[in-house]
């Protein structure tokens, strides 16, 4: 390998530009949130705010990671909301009350999510269909199944389950966030992770280099389904009940988090950690709007405007860095 022509730090910065940008974005939004909190509440946010922010973001962080798996292969998974719905509905009915039944039901629900993801993957890979269309159709199917399972919001989630996944007493969710980031880091360095990025970057070239595009897509969509199902479990634990429509909003917000996290919608570029941080930025923006006393009716307006501005700025910065690199 040729030695880097530029100082290693600048090189690393340019290589992980998306991750750096979302980190800066998160830092700025956290500082903005703290400042607003201080101004309105006359104290800094404490453990309670940290815990609730973490707990509230977990489902979106999972949905964003699920979306990342597919987006990296140059796809888009619109069915994530449907898988969350179904997983959530199943959890509300079948978790049971004993530790063993909860563990078994959770495992089976995650497995169901993986199978649904696999169906998406098979339709995309073997059916040679466009991902956005396949998942548009399966979204309707999964939503229908979820309503079949749980026609009205209800069911029950045992207290112990809620205490484990969404502990309101202490920021245990930090452990889950770190575990997710560790999962991504390991995946990224595994053959699967390399294959994901490779086929997203250039499928023909990847195939020529011995990467199986069909198998890789199957894995990507299966992982996406599995992780989305986990988001459904966290939502069930949080609400202590089920709702077959609770996941619908996550299809679009997961795309927002992924984009803020610097994952390219054109595939092959991005990091799961970035997407998770993107999910936290989204939560922080909602918090900021709340403490800035913005009329909640205008919330989507600010989120939409923020998304465009963030993407335009990131694009501009990226162009600047690439131009400097080309000159170097």
């Amino acid at each position: 390998m040729a030695p880097p022509r530029r100082p290693p730090l600048a090189h690393a910065l340019a290589r992980h530009l998306g991750l750096v940008l979302v980190s800066v974005l998160l830092a700025v939004s956290v500082i903005g949130y703290c400042a607003l909190y201080l101004a309105t509440q006359a104290r800094l946010p404490g453990m309670f705010e940290l815990t609730s922010s973490l707990n509230n973001t977990m489902p979106l962080a999972l949905a964003a990671l699920a979306q990342t798996m597919v987006v990296l292969t140059r796809g888009l998974d619109l069915s994530i909301g449907g898988i969350i719905d179904l997983s959530n509905a199943l959890a509300a009915l079948y978790l049971g009350t004993t530790a063993a039944s909860m563990a078994l039901a959770s495992a089976l629900i995650l497995l169901a999510g993986a199978v649904l993801g696999l169906v998406n993957g098979a339709l995309v890979a073997y059916g040679r269909l466009q991902p956005i269309l396949v998942t548009l159709a399966t979204l309707a199917i999964f939503q229908g199944l979820a309503i079949r399972v749980l026609p009205q919001p209800g069911g029950a989630v045992p207290e112990a389950y809620t205490a484990l996944l969404v502990n309101t007493g202490a920021p245990y969710a930090l452990v889950y966030v770190l575990a997710l980031m560790l999962f991504w880091t390991v995946l990224r360095r595994s053959q699967v992770g390399i294959a994901l990025l490779a086929i997203g970057d250039d499928e023909a070239a990847a195939a020529a280099n011995g990467i199986d595009p069909v198998a890789t897509k199957l894995v990507a969509y299966t992982l996406s389904g599995l992780i989305a199902a986990a988001a459904g479990l966290f939502l069930a634990a949080q609400a202590t009940a089920g709702d077959a429509t609770t996941g619908n909003g996550y299809t679009l917000t997961s795309i927002v988090a992924v984009v803020l996290g610097g994952v390219s919608l054109f595939g092959g570029r991005g990091s799961g950690i970035g997407a998770i941080l993107g999910a936290f930025v989204t939560t922080m923006i909602v918090n900021i709007l709340f403490f800035a006393h913005i009329d909640p009716l205008y919330q989507s307006f600010y989120e939409g405007a923020f998304l465009v501005i963030a993407v335009v700025l990131a694009e501009g910065l990226g162009r600047l860095v690439r131009r400097r690199r080309a000159r170097a």
Binding site: I255, S300, F301, Y302, G304, L307, V308, V311, V312, E315
Partner: peptide, 23 residues
């Protein structure tokens, strides 16, 4: 002109219009 992917641009615009309409 700005080079925003169509999915992101129109998704954001949907939010902008939702917020404006509601607000």
């Amino acid at each position: 002109v700005l080079g925003v992917p169509a999915v992101v641009m129109t998704l954001a615009m949907n939010g902008i219009m939702e917020g404006l309409t509601l607000g």
